[in-house]
């Protein structure tokens, strides 16, 4: 291969290199993506065809979706998830923005480390006391209880991602506002807040996705009345629940909407996720 490359003129070598990169990319990304392709494709597959995994062409049916929507608590729990993750994201974003600003501008290293430490706590360790306290005060199986628990996800995550975005805003802009007679708080609300909108959108979406995907908190703290989408999806892991087609339909319902959001703003998400990943 190397010898072949030497023989080719420079332009030919460039093209060959590009082709090899494309082939390697497809070889690596392809199998990773196949899981999602399979999930989507077979959600339209009749159950009796699952006995032969190699069948790709069939008459697509909607029955799996109608079954999931009509015979499970999927729709209600997607609604619950939207409420719980929505509120948790809003509160997490507001707290995150204020703290991220003061940590970034006033160099509050100790607070930043303390918040990082709260991200280390395994949910299961927190769930034992959460469950005991919730049982005492009647917060088990309520929206308030689950929203509060989900703040454990969204606040620290919000702080750490927002911090990166705020550090990117030049300090001079605020200082200019101070010279024009703004107070520090006004400077924050009139200068920083509008400028950090793109960062806030990315942070909100990431917080929402992490809260939306969380399974363990709702599994323990939610009950029959207030449960979330991941818990409904989990119920299909039981082979007696509904069959392979419905498993794939349930999985597709909760996964595909998230992908469209991510495709729409993938650039900000990549930087946000990297920051979040480093602090994770």
């Amino acid at each position: 291969m190397v010898a072949l490359k030497r023989l080719l003129p420079k332009r030919g070598r460039k093209i060959l290199e590009e082709l090899i990169t494309q082939a390697v990319m497809i070889a690596i990304v392809g199998p990773f993506f196949f899981i999602f392709f399979y999930m989507f494709w077979s959600s339209f597959k009749p159950d009796y065809l699952f006995f032969e995994p190699g069948i790709w062409s069939f008459e697509p049916i909607w029955d799996n979706y109608t079954e999931v929507i009509e015979n499970s608590d999927m729709v209600r729990n997607i609604g619950n998830s939207l409420i719980i993750s929505g509120f948790a994201t809003l509160i997490g974003l507001a707290c995150g923005l204020l703290t991220a600003y003061s940590v970034a501008r006033y160099n509050l290293q100790k607070l930043a480390m303390a918040i990082l430490l709260t991200r280390m706590i395994p949910y299961i360790t927190a769930l034992v006391p959460f469950w005991m306290v919730y049982k005492q005060v009647g917060l088990l199986n309520t929206y308030t209880g689950l929203i509060l628990a989900h703040l454990v996800i969204t606040i620290p995550f919000g702080v750490w991602i927002m911090m990166g975005f705020i550090e990117d805003i030049p300090k001079e802009l605020e200082e200019a506002a101070w010279i024009d007679g703004c107070s520090k708080a006004q400077g924050f609300f009139k200068v920083i807040l509008p400028l950090s909108t793109p960062g806030m959108v990315a942070t909100a979406i990431l917080c929402f996705i992490f809260s939306w995907n969380n399974f363990q908190l709702a599994l323990v703290l939610g009950g029959f009345d207030v449960s979330t989408a991941p818990v409904t999806v989990f119920k299909y892991a039981d082979p007696e629940a509904g069959g392979s087609g419905q498993m794939m339909a349930a999985a597709t319902l909760v996964t595909v909407p998230v992908f469209f959001i991510v495709l729409a703003i993938q650039k900000q998400l990549a930087s946000g996720l990297t920051m979040g990943g480093i602090s994770k």
Binding site: V29, F33, P230, V233, M247
Partner: peptide, 22 residues
């Protein structure tokens, strides 16, 4: 390629578990 590559990490873990079960 990058956006496809990022998909697993934002996918709901219980949902992708169902695919792996099959």
């Amino acid at each position: 390629y990058r956006s496809i590559w990022m998909m697993p990490m934002i996918a709901m873990s219980t949902a992708i578990s169902l695919v792996w079960i099959l």
